[in-house]
């Protein structure tokens, strides 16, 4: 069944409004590769956020893993992607693909894995983090990137105004952008939890 048909159902399932939620993290232990602590927010994304991802607009996503200290916050990891979902071919394309060998992704899951899942390598710093009682937060942000399509829609909107208002309206409107943000409290696993790949 086409993903497009599934989209409304996907949007309904697991739809959560923006706001703080407990986000489970888990270890992905491997005998061949490094152990990774996975923090995956995809199941907790709201319908609006998913709509933005699948809208066909170029979108910029940024994930930040933040440690809430007493007086300040520390960002321990950021992950950025600029992608576009092709509604015709139903696949994701990287827009900033200089370092990527392939610009097209085979599936949505590949996009989630590359862009939305935080992977922390097992290290003394991570262990210290697990042992500490510090609160960790994952801030997720999706912002639509300006493009020809955007500009065309904005121009269309401006043209609907009267001649008197057109100039001022155009100047004050700025760029129309869809932006969705979310913030999740991350529940770190105990040291006994593991998931072998």
């Amino acid at each position: 069944m086409s993903l497009t048909l599934l989209l409304p159902k996907l949007l309904m399932l697991g739809a959560l409004d923006t706001g703080s939620s407990g986000l489970d993290s888990k270890w992905n232990r491997s005998t061949k590769k490094e152990d990774l602590l996975l923090i995956d927010p995809t199941a907790y994304l709201s319908s609006k956020q998913k709509k933005l991802i699948y809208s066909g607009f170029p979108a910029y996503s940024i994930l930040k893993l933040v440690v809430d200290g007493k007086d300040s916050e520390t960002v321990i990891k950021t992950q950025e992607c600029a992608i576009k979902y092709d509604l015709w071919d139903e696949k994701f394309e990287f827009l900033l693909g200089e370092k990527e060998k392939k610009t097209s992704l085979k599936s949505s899951q590949e996009y989630f894995d590359k862009c939305l899942v935080i992977k922390l390598k097992d290290s003394p710093q991570v262990q210290t983090l697990l042992k500490s009682s510090l609160e960790i937060r994952l801030d997720v942000s999706f912002t639509q990137i300006s493009g020809k399509n955007n500009s065309a829609i904005t121009s269309w909107l401006i043209q609907q105004q009267s001649k008197v208002l057109k100039g001022l309206f155009s100047h004050m409107l700025g760029e129309l952008k869809l932006t969705e943000t979310a913030s999740f409290k991350v529940d770190l696993p105990s040291q006994n939890q593991e998931d072998k790949s």
């Binding site: 809208s55 509604l87 399509n149 065309a152 829609i153 909107l157 208002l165 004050m172 129309l176 869809l178």
Partner: peptide, 30 residues
């Protein structure tokens, strides 16, 4: 059709935060 849908989505998504307030601000300024 895709562009029409995207126009629909963009205007809906920005109506309350951007377009509506801008219309009010423009008329107020005038």
């Amino acid at each position: 059709l895709r562009k029409l849908k995207q126009r629909y989505q963009l205007i809906k998504g920005t109506w309350d935060d951007q377009i509506g307030p801008t219309l009010v601000a423009v008329h107020s300024i005038i």
